[in-house]
Amino acid sequence: MRKTVTIESTAVLLDVNNIDTDQIIPARFLKAVSRDSFGEKLFYNWRYRKDGSPDESFALNRSKGSVLVAGANFGCGSSREHAAWALADYGFGAVVASSFADIFRNNALNNGLVPVQVSPGFLERAVSAIRKDPDTKIDVDLSDRSIRVEGVGMETFPIGEYKRECLMKGYDDMDYLLSILSDIEKFEKRNAI
């Protein structure tokens, strides 16, 4: 997994609550058997008109940045990790929201995509700042679990120590699990599995 310590960028603002993974990547694109190129399909039905032309009014077609700022309950619905792959492949390194769905949060963390959960008040101020000035800088720093939004201020976000270290060092759960196979074998013996 890629290492992430800090992300400094302008934001792509998608001020919508309850964005489900069917919106992030529609089911018809889940037939691919590799992990590549899902970024092209990210938010497909919002990003492209029915005739396939880009909808210029949609945030992804208007602004650039590696931080996506969204609303509450981001990533609800289907467990498809393709949603996290699509966001990461498109170039996002962090998603800022006031809450995340549980499965999406895990999928993001397993792909080096930082779920930055902020308070609803901080999110509201960040959203207005970005609306006023699309070049507003956002700085996510895992070393002190902080997010700084230019003109708004700083807030710390919750992330477990284990996952924070994984992100910063580029480790994933698989590395850890493979290192404890002897414990797993003992567990199986003990429980006659």
Binding site: S79, E81, H82, I103, N111, G160, D173, M174, L177, I184
Partner: peptide, 23 residues
């Protein structure tokens, strides 16, 4: 019983285990 992502599917295939914080 709960849903997982593909990275976790790979972990379970490889080790029969998954890493989860108790909800």
């Amino acid at each position: 019983a709960f849903g997982i992502g593909t990275s976790e599917v790979e972990m379970v295939l490889a080790t029969q285990c998954i890493m989860q914080c108790k909800p």
